[in-house]
Each structure stands twice: as C-alpha cells, then as structure tokens.
C-alpha cells in the first residue's frame, strides 16, 4: 500500500492543516509517513505545495518523483494544474473550484475550470459553498480532505478520529463543523 499525494494551494490557504489530519490518521494506522512542506518566502501569497507520502513500507524520498503521485489534492483550481507533471497517468485530481485571484494575469476562471472539466479522473468541488453549509467557510479545507478521502487508503472514520484529535482542544463546535465539512466533501466526491 502506498499513496503519494501532492497538496497544492496558495500561501496562507492552510494546506498544512489537511496534511496534519492525514498525517495523524496515518500515524494512528501505523503507516510510514513523509511530508515535505513549503516554508519561507513563497508563503507570502505564492504557490505552495506539500508532498505527502503514506506507505506500509519505509519511504525513501521526502519528495514525490515526477509522474508518480496518486492524487493532486488542491484547494485552488489553477494550482491543481500546476503539478500535473507529478501525477501518474491514471492519477486523480481533486480540487476546489474556488479561485484565489492574487496575480494580475490570473486567467479567465472558466478557462481553468474547463481544463479541469475536460480531464478524466477529476473531482471538482464547490468547497466554499459546502463548507458554508457545514457551518463555516473556513472548513473548506476539510471539505477538500473529504473529497479526497475515497482515494486515500484511510477510512472516513480514520479521518474523523484525526479531526477530533487535532481540533479537540478548540471545542466540540469546531470539531462538529469540521467533521460535517469532511462528510459533505466525501458525499460530493461520490456524485
């Protein structure tokens, strides 16, 4: 068993909290984990990426080799496309459809979404709307995690337990909203 995930987004969008939940769930399942993060300059609104690797065997490289990722999990649609060279030919793209427009030459959003819609094995999720429905737009990360859960060798119950572990100290309300967001994400991916 091995799952290589490219987490993508824009600095400040909090892709690392997705990584933390997956990492915690994986550790609880005694899997090997390596998770390479982006710190420093690019965190200032630049493109950020995290390589998250799970396996039942020891993992050698902190970086996912080109063309070997199983999933690109992105919280921003254009960022999902940036890492396609890392994806396996039969890999999945799971991305939020909500653009983060902080550069003057950001392409027409529909053009970005069209590329994604035209691609097989792509899950495009209206994460902001689902998160709002779950109780807080900030939980759109957990919606995206939910949408990717079917493609990761971890169960929804594993993810929920990890959310309880991580968000527990922030109170029951925060845990409930995040779990609801996760569930809505899972449901969205199933459609």
């Amino acid at each position: 068993m091995k799952t290589d995930i490219i987490l993508a987004g824009v600095g400040g969008q909090g892709i690392l909290s997705i990584a933390t939940v997956i990492g915690t769930a994986a550790m609880a399942n005694n899997l090997y984990i390596k998770q390479a993060e982006t710190h420093g300059m690019s965190q200032r609104g630049g493109a950020v990426q995290s390589d998250l690797r799970l396996s039942d065997r020891p993992i050698a490289s902190d970086l996912i080799p080109l063309g070997q990722a199983d999933i690109i999990l992105s919280v921003e649609p254009m960022e999902a496309l940036r890492y396609l060279p890392f994806l396996k030919p039969d890999g999945w793209v799971v991305t939020s459809s909500a653009p983060m427009i902080n550069v003057p030459d950001y392409p027409e959003v529909e053009r970005v979404l069209d590329v994604l819609r035209a691609r097989e094995r792509t899950v495009l999720v209206d994460a902001d709307r689902l998160a709002t429905e779950a109780g807080n737009i900030k939980a759109s990360n957990m919606v995206m995690l939910g949408a990717a859960t079917p493609f990761i060798h971890l169960t929804a119950a594993d993810m929920e337990q990890a959310i309880r572990t991580i968000f527990g100290r922030k109170g029951d309300d925060v845990v409930a909203v995040n779990i609801e967001a996760l569930r809505r994400g899972i449901a969205a991916a199933a459609v």
């Binding site: 200032r44 609104g45 060279p85």
Partner: peptide, 13 residues
C-alpha cells in the same frame, strides 16, 4: 503530464 498553458506564475507578494 505537462502543465497546461492556462497556468500562470504565482510569485510571492
């Protein structure tokens, strides 16, 4: 895989 033309750079700011 290749990066589609629609993708532009997103430098830090």
């Amino acid at each position: 895989g290749s990066v589609p033309d629609v993708v532009v750079n997103r430098p830090p700011a």
